[in-house]
Simulated scan of single mutants.
Amino acid sequence: MSENTKSSSGGLWENIKVLIQALLLALVIRTFLFQPFSIPSGSMMSTLLVGDYLFVSKFSYGYSKYSFPFSPNLFSGRIWSSDPERGDVAVFRLPSDPSVDYIKRVIGLPGDRIQMRDGVLYINGEAVPREQVGTYEPEGRYERGEPVPVYQETLPNGVTYNTLDLSPNSPGDNTREFVVPDGHYFMMGDNRDNSSDSRFTVGYVPLENFVGRATYIFFSIADDASPLEIWKWPTDLRLDRFFKSAQK
């Protein structure tokens, strides 16, 4: 074998090793540290929009079987567990179908009593302070042709965020009182009148089903655009959303 052939063969093997190492590193980061997610619906508008891509911290709440690819049944419950806090925007597995990821805001903690009355959120019998702070005009597939009222809520622990009020009398504006069981959480979307959440079919979410806490938006593009159409980026990218907090 000539020296040139040996050199070429050695260089190829080195490139393969570098590629394998990079893939393993990416797998470790995705499994234990941060996992990318994209927003598929408008249930968290205006905090999160369709076309937002964000990182979710896998270590914020510890690890369960849902933290890992293919959800291997290696153990039950969570290890190195840390409880979600009221107001966190979190990704979790749908209790009725754990193959499906949902993203909502933590509203009710274990033992809480949660109820909606005339569009106002009540926690343990106390109304959550709510004031209108402006309006919002949905874009793309959610465009309405008129601005939507935006309300700021302040939870008992001081966390503030905005919610949308698409309709003054929607099915989720008046509910029964929900009592959150031990080890479970009550999740709601910020787009209160267009969110399938714990008020409806989602139900209470077990701690085991949490995947992680949303951190930062790293990429955002108009909801009717494709990220692969790079030539359209100059008009479709939402640069003002890059590196924005995914919490509010």
Results as ranks from 00 to 15, higher is better:
N4Y: 05
T5V: 11
K6G: 02
S7A: 12
S7F: 05
S7P: 00
S7M: 08
S9Y: 07
G10N: 12
L12E: 10
N15H: 06
K17C: 05
K17D: 00
I20R: 11
A22V: 01
L24I: 04
A26H: 08
I29L: 07
I29F: 03
R30P: 01
F34T: 08
Q35I: 09
I39G: 13
S41G: 09
S41F: 05
S41V: 02
M44W: 02
S46Y: 12
D52A: 14
V56S: 09
S60N: 12
K65S: 09
Y66D: 01
S67I: 14
F68W: 00
P69A: 07
P72D: 02
F75L: 04
G77Y: 00
R78K: 15
S81L: 08
G87A: 05
G87M: 05
D88Y: 03
R93V: 07
P98Y: 06
R105P: 02
V106L: 03
G111Y: 07
Q115D: 09
M116L: 11
R117W: 03
I123D: 13
V128P: 10
V133M: 03
T135K: 01
G140D: 08
Y142A: 09
R144S: 14
R144F: 11
E146N: 08
P147E: 10
V150F: 04
Y151W: 12
G158F: 08
L164D: 13
S167E: 14
N169E: 15
N169G: 11
N169C: 07
N174A: 12
D182Q: 15
G183A: 08
F186D: 14
M188Q: 06
L207R: 14
E208A: 14
G212A: 02
I217G: 15
S226T: 05
K232H: 15
W233H: 03
T235Y: 15
K244I: 03
K244V: 04
